[in-house]
């Protein structure tokens, strides 16, 4: 590019910037900060008809401006929090001003992420809760706000933690209870609350034990009520596998779901065979059929 062209372009840029700055200084008046959803006025020093544009990443407004008139922005017209740019575009010049729209101070809703939805009992810091605090127009409330998390298990025991939001977010980690059941996990911020259900489920079975009783040519096998190491009844439907072996080789197998805490089935009563019981990777006792009456 030739030096003369560069000089011309630079001159135009400086002139344009000076013009914008001058226009800004002469009349476009905006508040420095506005609460989202509230009404406010923008004053203009326009000498002729102009158009006012209010621009943000989420919203654009356009208003026609009469010479010298102010522009009233109605309540609810600007509802997204963020940084805004006001441009007054006239026939010969453009004025510019910047302002911030902030979330209303009051919490109107809380979004609540609780994870996981299902976990074993007695797990330290196994449950995480994250709360996002919003105003009535769904803007994240960035000012610190107190949030309370409550985890209530089926036995009535409650863990409570209170934390302040940081940049609109508050989070906690909590322990799963020793008692299985559906725990209510609630978050409260001001007058609003949100609730999730966290299933606290029994752990692996402890002391799996079965008994056997002859019934003609069959042997009736039944486990004792299957419980985990905290004494919780293992969930119904859990598969218990009964395996009958004779001289080391499998003769019969049956996968039985727990119903009302016990698994029950029948196998052929073969003398000398050995019946074992297992669930998942947990082994139970063995019974030699010669010993059963």
């Amino acid at each position: 590019m030739k030096p003369r062209a560069i000089l011309l372009l630079t001159t135009l840029l400086i002139a344009g910037t000076a013009s914008l700055h001058a226009a800004d200084a002469t009349g476009l008046g905006v508040p420095k900060s506005v609460e989202a959803g509230s009404a406010f006025t923008i004053t203009t020093g326009a000498a002729s008809k102009a158009v006012l544009y209010i621009v943000s990443p989420a919203q654009i407004l356009r208003r026609d401006v009469e010479p010298g008139a102010s522009v009233l922005i109605d309540a609810g017209d600007i509802h997204n929090a963020g940084h805004y740019l006001a441009l007054l575009v006239g026939p010969s010049s453009t004025e510019k001003a910047e302002f911030d729209v902030v979330a209303a101070g009051q919490t109107a809703s809380v979004s609540f992420l609780a994870k996981p939805s299902r976990l074993p009992v007695n797990l330290p810091e196994g449950i995480s809760g994250v709360a996002y605090v919003f105003d009535a127009l769904h803007n994240l409330v960035l000012n610190p706000a107190p949030v309370s998390f409550q985890l209530s298990d089926v036995g009535g025991a409650t863990q409570t933690r209170s934390v302040a939001t940081r940049n609109g977010v508050a989070w906690v980690k909590m322990n799963s209870a020793p008692k299985a059941g559906a725990a209510q996990f609630q978050v409260s911020a001001g007058s609003v609350a949100n609730k999730r259900v966290v299933q606290q489920v029994p752990g692996d079975p402890c002391n799996l034990k079965m008994t056997a009783r002859r019934s003609g040519q069959r042997v009736v096998l039944e486990t004792e009520p299957v419980r985990d190491c905290s004494g919780n009844a293992v969930s119904d439907g859990t598969i218990v596998t009964f395996t009958q072996t004779y001289q080391g080789r499998s003769e019969a197998t049956v996968d039985v779901p727990l119903k009302r805490d016990v698994a029950r089935t029948e196998l052929p009563a073969r003398e000398g065979s050995v019946i074992s019981v297992a669930t998942g990777v947990v082994m139970g006792n063995e019974i030699r059929l010669g010993d059963v009456r």
């Binding site: 499998s250 019969a252 029948e266 196998l267 052929p268």
Partner: peptide, 28 residues
């Protein structure tokens, strides 16, 4: 569904020439 429960009984290995594992299925 947890049902039906199928018992696998009388299992045995059968030798050559047609090696197979046979048995009986019992719908409990």
């Amino acid at each position: 569904s947890a049902d039906p429960v199928i018992g696998v009984e009388s299992q045995k290995l059968n030798p050559l020439p047609q090696p197979s594992l046979t048995g009986e299925l019992v719908n409990q």
